[in-house]
Amino acid sequence: MAIEVRNVNKSFGRTPVLRDVSLDIASGSLTALLGPSGGGKSTLLRVIAGLEQPDTGTVVISGVDATRLAPQRRNVGFVFQHYAAFKHLTVFGNVAFGLQVRKRPKDEIRRRVGELLELVHLEQFADRYPAQLSGGQRQRMALARALAVEPQVLLLDEPFGALDAQVRKELRGWLRRLHDEVHVTTVFVTHDQEEAIEVADTIAVLADGVVEQVGSPHEVYDNPANPFVMRFLGPVTRIDGHLVRPHDIELSASPQPGTTPATVSRVVRLGFEVRVEMTVAGEDAFAQVTRGLAQRLDLKPGDTVHMRPTVGAAAH
């Protein structure tokens, strides 16, 4: 186990932010702390890094009790949402910083920084200043900086939050590939479930200071532990008092075993999918079907369609 968090409680003033949180993070894994804003994910990350002190509980990193250790001594790399670039130092200076703190010889530093800049594709920017870089480049520099000191654990606090959508998507894939190459235990915080599902191999869902579920992306999506997790991880619709995923609803023109009649209220084309909004037993619901199926059914508002949840689909 790279990181073991046990019974951590943390309050800011009178507001509890982490409530009896326990979490294991496997060595070499890429874990996402996913949850809504204010849920405690960033605080948990900072507790692991030593930038916040828990009120009670312990943090063990690589078998060593790090609970009261200063951040300097934990050998944990941290990447901030707004880059925290050392603006008075060049890109080279930034990445070299941790090595200079450890008083490494100059040529070793030069070699290592060169390797890292190549890794993040910033070789030709070595002499530039952060202000001259784009947001995405600054974040890659921040990553190289954190990796320079070969941390046991790499922590990223909403690393792509300050970037625009296109750059964000690029860097997501890039982070995954980087992890595959470097294999350092990585934990990142995000409120974007798509990002968590796409990048991480383990997701810990945190809301209101409590760990709701930990599992692979498949597990948390298809077997959510409770309605909250289900709602947070993907779209849901309510059928007969149960929460069902809209694309787990089968539609047919004629009654089938187990189907219920529904009245179509609206059909919305969403590019490759079609959302069919309907009323079932007096309640509003919607299904998401492929374009092909929608074309075959040729539904219009007012039509009757027969629907049933797919057997074995996630429900709460």
């Binding site: 930038l51 951040p71 300097q72 001594r73 944990v76 008075h88 910083f97 320079a148």
Partner: peptide, 25 residues
């Protein structure tokens, strides 16, 4: 930016080193 200081700490810099190389400049 307080984040800069915390970044320096996470990289192993103590308070005086951080002051000298990050805050002072």
């Amino acid at each position: 930016d307080r984040d800069m200081e915390q970044a320096a700490w996470s990289l192993g810099a103590g308070p005086w080193y951080t002051f000298r190389r990050i805050i002072l400049p």
